[in-house]
Amino acid sequence: MGREVSESCIDSLLTEMVSTYCNRFYATKPELAARRIEAIGYQVGHQLSERYTMERPRFSDHLEAIKFICKDFWSEVFKKQIDNLKTNHRGTFVLQDNRFRWLARMSVDPPTENGGLPQDPSALAENEATQLMSMYLYFPCGIIRGALSNLGISCAVSADISSLPACSFVIRIKA
């Protein structure tokens, strides 16, 4: 029997984790904070993949493992499947989620009126928002990397925000 987890608790925990690492532990070193958050995600993904692959046959190639991430793994974690999977057949996969659950409730500060800036204020605000948001994506990136590496695929995962709440994860498998 599956256990249930309160979704709002998870949301708050993620928000708190990111803010604690970014503003308290590593306030001056955002790269270090990102690495720490990614490492937590890695451990989570590592353990989840062990559990979710329990009743299934072994994967014969990388694509099968990626498909497992897109379908079963994503449904277990986010209650939906990945919306779009692209690959160049040379070890790069792009997983697109049109409504990523952990970004769905994020809001961006409206651009503040500040005439003295040389740049377009709305573009600047958007840029800043993307930066802030990307901090929240290190955790799911780590989850994907942890799950795949436990399945024997070492890879690097990065995330892109195209337009909220859509986002895509880029998986590069190391040869």
Binding site: S49, E50, T53, M54, R56, P57, R58, F59, S60, N150, L151, G152
Partner: peptide, 25 residues
């Protein structure tokens, strides 16, 4: 083909040895 249960690995005089390989090797 890729079942996790590998079945009887080998019998010895006194024992039988079974194996199982998970997805995570």
């Amino acid at each position: 083909l890729n079942e996790t249960f590998l079945g009887l690995l080998y019998p010895t005089e006194n024992y039988k040895v079974y194996g199982y390989l998970t997805n995570t090797k």
